[in-house]
Design a protein around this nucleic acid. Sequence first.
DNA 1: TTACAATATTATAATAATTTCAAATATTCA
DNA 2: TGAATATTTGAAATTATTATAATATTGTAA
Lengths: 141, 141
Amino acid sequence: MGLVLMDKTFNHILEGLKENGIYLTHQRMKIFEYLYKNRNHPTVEMIYKDLIKEMPTLSKTTVYNTMKILMEAGIVKEIPVNSNESRYDILTEEHGHFKCIKCGYIYDFNLNMESLSVEGLDNFIIYDKDVFFKGICSSCF
Amino acid sequence: MGLVLMDKTFNHILEGLKENGIYLTHQRMKIFEYLYKNRNHPTVEMIYKDLIKEMPTLSKTTVYNTMKILMEAGIVKEIPVNSNESRYDILTEEHGHFKCIKCGYIYDFNLNMESLSVEGLDNFIIYDKDVFFKGICSSCF
DNA sequence: TTACAATATTATAATAATTTCAAATATTCA
DNA sequence: TGAATATTTGAAATTATTATAATATTGTAA
């Protein structure tokens, strides 16, 4: 588990999935392609609405299943942006998320996680770190 | 709006709510008391399950409504810990959250948000910053 | 204190996101 | 090809949250 995305191309990632015993079905490849091309932290609904145009029989359940599989493969993660629908992000370099409370858009921003000083987590194993800001973006300001 | 919790006692906060024109009903006081005493990042369900013991007619809608009002008053906030139910936290000093993937418990930890170096948010107005870690806690390890 | 107007609570119904399930379909590999 | 296995699909079930309307409570002013 846990393929590394960094510096791999689209096809390399797909190959990696295959090597991990994950069947590369048409639906899965299209869903992954959507995530790879649109770095927009989509909801299941957004992915579904877009892909149904070219795959009229696509089921929302398949999108849910695929997101789960891609998460287990370590290629995608759910990002914590407290809303009532899950939002997903393809795993790339470390970055933070900023949600604009006016337009709702979720921006990526650069950060250096190492710089953050924390205390009280001795003997805790940290698998994942997230930074989430909320406010008003420069376009809405 | 936006009462400050820091260094205020339980009763001071309640008085502050009253001054802001918020009725101090029995339900609201009990819900606030729960949040004040149990710093456990509860879900609506957790609050409801606990309080129904002493208030048999309590409605879940009231818990939802009260959380909303306390958030608008700036006393409580929703914390981003991506799951499908909202979790709330009483506003205190700045801290991060760590969720153990084994026991599910959400720990607070100290951090210095100022130390985090970020870039790409020029002309963005930041209202709120959250840091969320996931992993295995020292008890489960 | 009483009456009134404003606001809150409650139970129920409605909505929305997600999960589960079983049948139909597709894929793999011998 | 054909059997075994895995995936996709659509429908139904579940869970979290919001809306509605009746009832109850609160604060204010006579």
